[in-house]
Design a protein around this nucleic acid. Structure first.
Lengths: 315, 315
DNA sequence: GTCATTTAGTCAAACGTTTGATCAGAGTTA
DNA sequence: TAACTCTGATCAAACGTTTGACTAAATGAC
């Protein structure tokens, strides 16, 4: 075996460390460290700095993230646990969080509840790997969260106002509902019903069931507000099944707009919920506020009505 | 300030280390290490093992993942770079990968191209943080991949058969297309057209444009295969716009089935592509095969036609 | 010319593991 | 009883940084 090959084969270069760079630049490793991490307390001659920078470039040095984190007790990573990646709202929250994290020089370690659950995720994470945990719409978390708290890892609940400890950021659903009502009233509706929401997100079946119940009640309402697009899809199907036309017989507006809405028949009028901003704000608050301070923020930016084809004047 | 409080306030217990456990169990730290990580070369008396286990339980010890990774040069994390989390196919790939990773005791560090791009992502990752990188449908990667390869990090391209180095896993699109054709022929179709695919995933506009072009050509085809659901949505809209009925005037079947398909009008017949399995298989191959061996796998499991309402016998 | 201060660094101790080498004592063999 | 071989551990050197304490030389004040 070749003397330079530590691995399988091929002349894979030995890792370049701080010490290698230091030797090449004729300085102490600590100087290189401080230059790399931009330590403001470092006093250094311009010429020396140039030498260090050149050595870094020549050797292709890249800091070892693990050693760095171990020593400094900051990993530069955030945990993010979502119910399900394939859920469109979760995906948007992740995307927003990811961008915000990258802007802060951090990374996301994701996990989802479609796998073996939060407890196992935190277990896999081990100690030291994350500087904070973002939990999307998770009700059971409490036990695990206590442990996290004890080991000093701050956490934040997203899209669900959480139980005992007030540490959450949620979208402004009230404003969304108000926007929907205003829109419907401006079209002339006076009797507006609201289909019940389910705490952890609606399903197609749930929307259909709720709509059938609404029809059975023989409500006088000329317009109905549905808590989300998935439920609205079910509701629309239920209406079609009994031959009611939308928006002719009934106007429908959904909260928490998501992409499928535009492709339904009729295209669904909906209030946009800023899921991306939710994730972004979550990251920002998580890294800015200490683990022990309460956080209860409502994200209202970008909540607005998108008028499509499912609303019109009452008959 | 309380003497036990290293942080802000409150009696946050000092981190428990291997040494603490060792002291409590009256053994050397290395014994605890070997017990925790299940080192098979360790010879230990049952009673000693019991003492160690008890000490671990009593102290609530959890290994420091950073120290462990630093020393052992394995991080237990995999990088995953996707074009966009909010893309339904990507989300499914991530979900599959996440589950497979968890089963192997590993975690995913995600990044997406909606942020500052692959180069910056790899930069943020630094050295040592990941044991491999999964790249979903990324064409530009080449430059970065060379660097990765040089530093010994294996990678794999998903859902795109990649250029120079053969390291990819892709879904069986040929089988999918064959299934679509078989279905259409069994309905009686003899002239079947295929709308052109775009390498990096279709858009609504792309589907509409392609369908208009198809109509302009005055094709004799009675059925058409569309490369994905998003494009099919556009195609359906274009057909509706010119008053053609589906499946009356034209049967439409999409490849790469995804959720919105069932809620379109008419519900879209489509061939299911196992995106989750793609992610899962990617993880498995990434951790099993060395960085230098070529990988070119086609995932065919679960490719099957889902008949909905957009296909029927020709007029 | 002496003392204090600033400049431009050096030094060494962590951070918490893993891992191969080493070792004391008990048991076995010749 | 001397020379081995197990067994059940211990020991110490990494892994690659960060960070505060320290210092030699140069500068400035008086």
């Amino acid at each position: 075996m070749s003397p330079t090959a530590p691995g399988r084969r091929g002349p894979r270069a030995r890792r370049v460390t701080l010490a290698d760079v230091a030797a090449r630049a004729h300085v102490d490793p600590s100087v290189v460290s401080k230059v790399v991490s931009g330590d403001p307390s470092l006093r250094i001659r311009p010429e020396t700095r140039r030498r260090v920078l050149a050595a870094i470039r020549d050797t292709g040095y890249r800091p070892n993230a693990l050693a760095r984190s171990l020593r400094s007790a900051r990993s530069g990573m955030l945990g993010m646990f979502v119910p399900d990646f394939t859920d469109a709202a979760s995906a948007r929250i992740v995307a927003g969080a990811e961008t915000a994290a990258a802007e802060l020089g951090m990374l996301l370690v994701t996990g989802s509840n479609t796998g073996p659950g939060l407890r196992r995720y935190v277990e896999l994470l081990g100690r030291g790997r994350i500087d904070g945990l973002l939990l999307v719409r998770d009700e059971q978390g409490s036990g695990v969260l206590g442990e996290l708290e004890r080991s000093g890892v701050p956490w934040l609940l997203l899209d669900l106002a959480g139980g005992q400890a007030r540490r959450h950021v949620v979208p402004d659903d009230e404003r969304a509902a108000a926007l929907a009502v205003t829109h419907l009233r401006s079209l002339g509706h006076r009797r507006i019903a609201q289909l019940p929401a389910r705490r952890a997100g609606g399903t197609h079946g749930h929307g259909a069931t709720a709509m059938r119940a609404f029809l059975r009640r023989g409500s006088q309402a000329t317009a109905v507000i549905v808590p989300d697009v998935v439920a609205a899809t079910g509701a629309l199907a239920a209406l079609r099944a009994v031959g009611r036309s939308v928006p002719g017989d009934l106007s429908v507006v959904a909260l928490r707009d998501l992409p499928p809405a535009a492709d339904l028949t009729p295209p669904l009028t909906a209030v946009r919920t800023p899921f991306g901003d939710l994730g972004r704000r979550g990251v920002e608050l998580l890294v800015r506020t200490g683990a022990d301070r309460p956080v209860a923020e409502v994200v209202s930016t970008g909540v607005r009505l998108v008028e499509r084809g499912s609303t019109g004047p009452p008959r």
